[in-house]
Amino acid sequence: MTRIVLLSDGYDMTPVVRPLLKAAPELVIVPEQEGSADVAVCWNPRPGSLARLRGLKLVHSIAAGVDNILADPALPAVPLCRVVDPGHAQGMTEFVTWGVLHFHRQMDRVLRNHARRVWERPLQVAAAQRTIGVMGLGTLGARVAGELRRFGFSVRGYSRTRKALPGVETFGEDELKHFLSPLDILVCLLPLTEATRGILNREHLAAMPRGARLIHAGRGEHLVRDDVLGALNEGQLGGAIIDVFDKEPLSPGDAFWQAPNLIVTPHMASVASFECIGEQVASNVRRLVRGEPLANQVDAARGY
């Protein structure tokens, strides 16, 4: 009998139960109060909650991101795995493509004019005249960059080590400002590491042309809140779509709601289905029981 505990600080984990038990009926869900479990299935668990579990052999995130788990200073020294949804790249590509086209076709200006009942035709330019930068060239970023290139945009890519992508000019870690300097729109899809924490700051936003736009669907901790808000209020950023924040959900009084030309989206860019979560967690639990290599195991030193 393999015992599973569901842990989260504020997120309702109950929708995971049915698909998990459908995929592996032999599993037993136990309450956190029992104090022991073989596997912890998590999203943003409370610091220290994992360390208090006796007999723990595996920690499994229900998402692709694991930074909320790695941030726990008392994280037990057991394998950590994440969910990689085959449809995740498609969802992220759709979201980013919508955001890029929103700014490229100046729909933000059209919507402001609509609210004021102003008929004005914004100047339209060819996609080739827009330079889009994609930060993070893993599975998601590479797919997004390729799709934007197919639309005809001039695309640049940035990653820790320089990658080779067809039709995309790429840059490495020591070339960040050079990467940023000509961008009309910056797309952030980076993983969260110590090197990328706070990367969307005043210095880097100022490296882009005045009025550049931001689409952020990486991690909330990439944002330096006051710097991003300042750039929007001062016009250095001409607009933004932000899907992830360091504290979610945003409170009704949060300053981001009132920032000029900012669309707040509720961490919806791309989310794994509960069926996918259940199947992947169940598969890894069975691998664990059989002593087989785990799928999508995280390298804690790299953070992904």
Rank of each mutant, 00 (worst) to 15 (best):
L137S: 06
L140F: 03
L140I: 15
L140P: 08
L140V: 15
A142R: 14
V144D: 04
V144K: 09
A145I: 08
A145H: 08
G146W: 06
R149G: 15
R149C: 13
R149F: 07
R149P: 00
F151T: 06
F153A: 01
V155M: 01
V155T: 03
V155D: 00
R156L: 13
R156A: 10
R156M: 06
S159G: 12
R160V: 11
T161M: 01
R162Y: 03
R162W: 04
R162T: 14
K163A: 07
K163E: 03
L165E: 01
L165M: 05
P166S: 13
G167N: 08
V168G: 02
V168Q: 05
V168E: 01
V168L: 02
V168R: 10
E169R: 15
T170S: 03
D174P: 00
E175D: 09
E175V: 05
L176R: 09
L176Y: 04
K177Y: 00
K177I: 00
F179E: 04
F179Y: 14
P182R: 12
I185S: 03
L186G: 08
V187M: 06
C188H: 11
L189C: 05
L189P: 10
L192H: 14
L192T: 12
A195M: 11
T196W: 06
I199R: 05
L200N: 06
L200I: 15
N201K: 12
N201E: 08
E203G: 14
E203W: 00
H204Q: 13
H204V: 08
L205A: 09
L205Q: 07
L205S: 03
A206R: 13
A206Q: 14
A207M: 04
M208P: 03
R210A: 13
G211I: 12
L214R: 11
H216T: 12
A217Y: 06
A217Q: 12
A217K: 10
A217T: 12
G218M: 11
H222F: 05
H222P: 10
L223I: 15
R225I: 08
R225G: 09
R225Y: 11
D226M: 00
D227R: 08
L229F: 04
